[in-house]
């Protein structure tokens, strides 16, 4: 099962990853982090993630820390 790991404390809410995901699995969260911004969250109930790591390559703040494919 492919998946990504998000470190929400590093997310600065630029939201560049949202449009990068080919399966639209990243959304703006209702929660905020210590910076007071609505971070992104990974939401993949149907296991659609393909582990392409496009989101992690795009993220300018190292907030997507790990990507697994399988």
């Amino acid at each position: 099962m492919s998946r990504i790991v998000i470190d929400k404390e590093k997310c600065k809410a630029c939201y560049l990853c949202i449009n990068e995901c080919p399966k639209q699995l990243i959304k703006i969260s209702n929660d905020t982090n210590k910076l007071g911004v609505h971070t992104v969250e990974f939401n993949d109930p149907d296991n659609k993630c393909i582990g392409c790591a496009m989101c992690a390559m795009r993220c300018p703040d190292l907030a997507i820390t790990e990507v697994y494919r399988g």
């Binding site: 492919s2 582990g51 790591a53 390559m57 190292l62 820390t65 790990e66 697994y68 494919r69 399988g70």
Partner: peptide
């Protein structure tokens, strides 16, 4: 078994916040 395809580079300091 999933394989890791992305991790943060080791040449960065641990737990970096830009």
């Amino acid at each position: 078994m999933a394989t890791q395809v992305f991790k943060l580079p080791e040449s960065l300091k641990g737990d970096v916040k830009y």
